[in-house]
């Protein structure tokens, strides 16, 4: 196997691990606000790692540029969505969960 494949395998595994972590957080965290933390942060890191692995494996710079552009667009969309969902929840009077 080429060296890039040996580098991309751990990146892909780590990316999958963080997606799993985000999903488990989504299921275990108690309210919409804490779940947003799990979704935005763990998934962004997972996506970053998987994008990194795919950049190593891609043929040609056009594909690499495309992957990076997709990553940046998803980051921007996630960050904005996180804020919008939280704001909408607050405006509806959903109180954040607090440790009893």
């Amino acid at each position: 196997m080429p060296i890039s494949t040996w580098l991309s395998i751990p990146l892909l595994l780590a990316g999958a691990f963080f997606f799993l972590g985000g999903t488990i957080g989504m299921l275990r965290f108690p309210d919409v606000y804490t779940r947003l933390h799990a979704l935005t942060k763990a998934d962004n890191l997972g996506l970053g790692l998987i994008t990194g692995a795919l950049v190593l494996e891609a043929d040609g710079w056009a594909v690499r540029a495309k992957l990076l552009l997709i990553w940046i667009l998803v980051l921007a969309a996630t960050a904005t969505l996180c804020h919008i969902v939280a704001r909408a929840a607050l405006e509806r009077g959903i109180r954040p969960w607090r440790r009893p």
Binding site: G21, I24, G25, R28, A38, K41, A42, G46, R98, R99
Partner: peptide, 17 residues
């Protein structure tokens, strides 16, 4: 990402939002 994954996978769910 590491921080939130650690908290999500922790047995006692260490969060205090």
């Amino acid at each position: 990402g590491v921080d939130v994954a650690r908290r999500a996978l922790h047995r006692r769910l260490p969060i205090a939002p």
